[in-house]
């Protein structure tokens, strides 16, 4: 299946992919960035995105698809506009991550891995996000929120609309 990349990816995404590809001796090296740019516009990576990225970077579709499925930050199914990742690894566990996870799911009325009814958030239990000095912590979209207590959650979530 070939697609016309311009029909799937915006001009701005295509330009950013070219800029990234220019850094490396191979176009393939730009694949993670390309998927990231495309995902930022589409919300998730569907088959058309995979095909378009493959076309742009002169790759086989499987070479793009295997990258899209290998890395946690790529979503190959629809997710909320603001993915929430609650670290549940050791340092956060020792400082109450379970309680944060439970309160968050209760407030948003979801189970871990589910998306809120309004499509704003998907809650993921996460592996260590490298902010153990601020445990317990979570990320919402690109932002880290550290030293959490259950009482903070409403105010934080309010910022993402």
């Amino acid at each position: 299946m070939t697609v016309e990349p311009g029909a799937i990816l915006s001009e701005s995404v295509l330009q950013k992919i070219e800029a990234e590809a220019g850094k490396y001796p191979t176009r393939r090296a730009a694949v993670k960035s390309a998927l990231r740019y495309a995902q930022a516009e589409h919300g998730w990576i569907n088959e058309d995105v995979v095909s378009a990225v493959a076309e742009v970077l002169n790759l086989e579709r499987i070479e793009v698809f295997e990258v899209a499925t290998f890395y946690d930050m790529f979503y190959t199914r629809p997710v909320g506009r603001f993915p929430v990742r609650v670290c549940t690894n050791v340092s956060c566990l020792l400082r109450g991550a379970d309680g944060i996870m439970d309160s968050l799911c209760e407030r948003l009325d979801v189970e871990a891995g589910e998306t809120t009814a309004d499509g704003r958030f998907t809650v993921f239990p996460a592996e260590c996000l490298g902010a153990c000095g601020g445990a317990p912590m979570m990320s919402v979209a690109d932002d880290y929120h550290e030293n959490l207590s259950a009482e903070d959650l409403d105010a934080i979530l309010e910022r993402y609309r």
């Binding site: 393939r28 993670k32 960035s33 998927l35 890395y71 930050m73």
Partner: peptide, 26 residues
């Protein structure tokens, strides 16, 4: 240049990192 990873612990292993840098699975 910088390159951003995309969420995979294994890419901290130096040869996995190189694979990932080249646009492959880590």
């Amino acid at each position: 240049h910088s390159q951003r990873g995309a969420g995979a612990y294994i890419c901290g292993e130096e040869t996995a990192l190189l694979e990932s840098l080249e646009g492959k699975k880590g």
